[in-house]
Write a protein that binds this DNA or RNA. Structure first.
Ligand code: ZN
Ligand code: ZN
Ligand code: ZN
Ligand code: ZN
Lengths: 157, 157
DNA sequence: TCTTATTTGATTTTTATTATCAACAAGAGT
DNA sequence: ACTCTTGTTGATAATAAAAATCAAATAAGA
């Protein structure tokens, strides 16, 4: 897997050692594309094969990975940070998130067409944009259906 | 001021009483348009004229205001929530934020042209969008200048 | 292998936020 | 204006995510 080589290189470039703990955390995040795990959730998975690894190490490792650009820290206002792999080989495919305000489900939007807006902002505010986050809040298709069903049940009589 | 009337109405509609504490917190946020205060910062300002008001009340009030749509909760990954008034009379003027990754300064972007993108997402993902947040991370003009100056000083010899 | 600076696990500490609960006060009705 | 009722508050304790501490362990270069 190419990701792993890039990971090792990034660690090395930044002057950090490749430890078992760091490899394991990397693998857990890498094997769960599309998920948005909290430190505790990552810890629970790590523990299965490596019960000797401590929670503090997971927190430390996530912070380090974020610093050297291996993962992104996400915030969905649920009381903890959540993480996902950054696309190590192709930064241009950054995706965004749909957050359902009813069931909390998080969907990923695989487009990123903010070029025009970014250009405008860079000129207008003299601000050098290096990254962005975009979240849409609303109702997922399931919750939309459920709401309609409830509405029908109340009106039918 | 019209905002205050809308505030009272929203409280009433949701079945909450208008207390001195709620009025004072509302006034502090309303008098600081463009700022993004943390609960502690709001508490410090509230204390000046109303030392009897407690921190727990400030937290409770902010949570309540968020629930009934009077304020927005913002997250800049600095360890606490930050708040700003929602535009009570005109929701269409939602703004976004430029976060400087060097000095931490936060600028506001007074445009919101995501209509095309929103329409696409709504259709493609069958997701009913009700709100969104957009943040740009990068270098503000000051930090850009400072970096260039440093670069010049190192190269001149 | 040896050396050394880095990293780790266990634990404690910090700090933002929430829960608790008796005292209090807003607002409706009289 | 006077109750009465129920929502609200202040002080404090409790909770929980994240960071700090530090002796012991270990990766990686010589
Ligand atoms: Zn949903
Ligand atoms: Zn994602
Ligand atoms: Zn700056
Ligand atoms: Zn703002």
């Amino acid at each position: 897997m190419k990701f792993y080589e890039i990971f090792k290189q990034k660690l090395n470039e930044a002057g950090y050692k490749l430890t078992t703990q760091r490899r394991v955390v990397f693998e857990v995040i890498g094997a769960n594309e599309g998920k948005h795990f909290s430190p505790e959730e990552i810890y629970d998975i790590v523990k299965i094969d490596h019960p000797e690894i401590g929670l503090a190490t997971v927190y430390r490792t996530l912070k380090l990975f974020e610093k050297i650009g291996i993962i992104y820290r996400l915030n969905f206002n649920d009381g903890c940070s959540r993480f996902e792999m950054s696309h190590l080989d192709d930064e241009s495919h950054r995706h965004h998130h749909l957050v359902c305000i009813e069931c909390g489900k998080i969907l990923e939007v695989k487009i990123d067409s903010l070029q025009a807006l970014e250009s405008f902002v860079e000129k207008e505010y003299s601000f050098d944009i290096q990254n962005h986050t975009l979240k849409f809040y609303g109702l997922c298709s399931d919750c939309k259906k459920r709401r309609n069903k409830c509405k029908m049940e109340t009106t039918e009589s």
